[in-house]
Amino acid sequence: MNIRVGYGYDVHQLADGEEFWLGGIKLDYHKGAVGHSDADVLIHVICDALLGAANLRDIGFHFADTDPEYKGIDSKILLDKTVALIRSRGYEIGNIDVTVSLQKPKINPHIPEMKKCLAKVMNIKEDDLSIKATTTEKLGFVGREEGVDAHAVVLIYKIDGNKIENQYGH
């Protein structure tokens, strides 16, 4: 079995009057994330981590923010395309661990709905997706409510039937 780990990081500015999409769901808040797509930072880090684990570059390479096709696109579509791409290379998702840093709004009450939504998009068990929330104790751009950031770590695997050999050929 070939096991790979990927890491993703993303940040989006928050602005008044923008819609706030996070984890595939729309949050009711007076600020939202700014971006070329729907600016769902949680989905973007998952895409980046999956692509990185499969050595397929990053989200910007596959879905450029200069491409009008992706202007305002629902990030769940990008996630679906990313998962299809890694699966076309023979990989499956082992698990995903995401941390979102956001001062306000509090997202803990929304995590079960986010997990349900994203697990369905990726066709994985909800138990294979961990979403955690934190604040920065009012420090930095997150603490000043100027932005949101997220980190993700993923494990993917490929079962190709071949024995994996160590450096000595065993």
Results as ranks from 00 to 15, higher is better:
Met1Thr: 11
Ile3Phe: 14
Arg4Val: 03
Val5Leu: 11
Tyr7Cys: 01
Gln13Thr: 13
Ala15Tyr: 06
Ala15Asn: 14
Gly17Cys: 06
Phe20Arg: 02
Leu22Val: 15
Lys26Asp: 08
Tyr29Met: 01
Tyr29Leu: 00
Tyr29Ser: 01
Lys31Gly: 00
Gly32Leu: 12
Ser37Met: 04
Asp40His: 04
Asp40Gly: 01
Leu42Arg: 07
Leu42Asn: 09
Leu42Ile: 07
Ile43Gln: 07
Ile46Ala: 05
Leu50Met: 05
Leu50His: 03
Gly52Trp: 02
Ala53Gly: 13
Asn55Leu: 11
Arg57Gly: 00
Asp58Glu: 08
Asp58Gln: 03
Phe63Arg: 14
Thr66Ala: 11
Glu69Val: 12
Tyr70Val: 09
Lys71Val: 10
Ile73Phe: 07
Ile73Gln: 14
Leu78Glu: 12
Leu79Ala: 11
Thr82Pro: 10
Val83Pro: 08
Leu85Ser: 02
Arg87Val: 03
Arg89Thr: 01
Arg89Val: 00
Glu92Phe: 05
Ile93Thr: 09
Ile93Phe: 07
Gly94His: 03
Asn95Ile: 00
Asp97Thr: 11
Asp97Gln: 06
Val98Glu: 12
Leu102Asn: 02
Gln103Leu: 02
Lys104Val: 00
Lys104Ile: 00
Lys106Pro: 01
Ile107Asp: 04
Ile107Pro: 09
Ile111His: 08
Met114Cys: 13
Met114Asn: 12
Met114Glu: 13
Ala119Val: 11
Ala119Phe: 04
Ala119Arg: 06
Lys120Met: 09
Val121Asp: 13
Met122Ile: 02
Asn123Glu: 15
Lys125Pro: 06
Glu126Tyr: 10
Ile131Gln: 09
Ala133Cys: 08
Thr134Asn: 12
Thr135Ala: 04
Thr135Tyr: 03
Glu137Pro: 00
Gly140Trp: 09
Val142Leu: 08
Arg144Asp: 02
Arg144Met: 06
Glu146His: 12
Gly147Asp: 07
Val148Gln: 10
Val148Met: 04
Ala150Lys: 07
Ala152Gln: 03
Ala152Val: 02
Ala152Asn: 02
Val153His: 04
Val154Pro: 04
Ile159Arg: 14
Gly161Ser: 07
Lys163Ala: 12
Lys163Leu: 15
Lys163Glu: 14
Ile164Ala: 12
Glu165Asn: 08
Asn166Cys: 03
Asn166Tyr: 12
Gln167Arg: 14
His170Val: 05
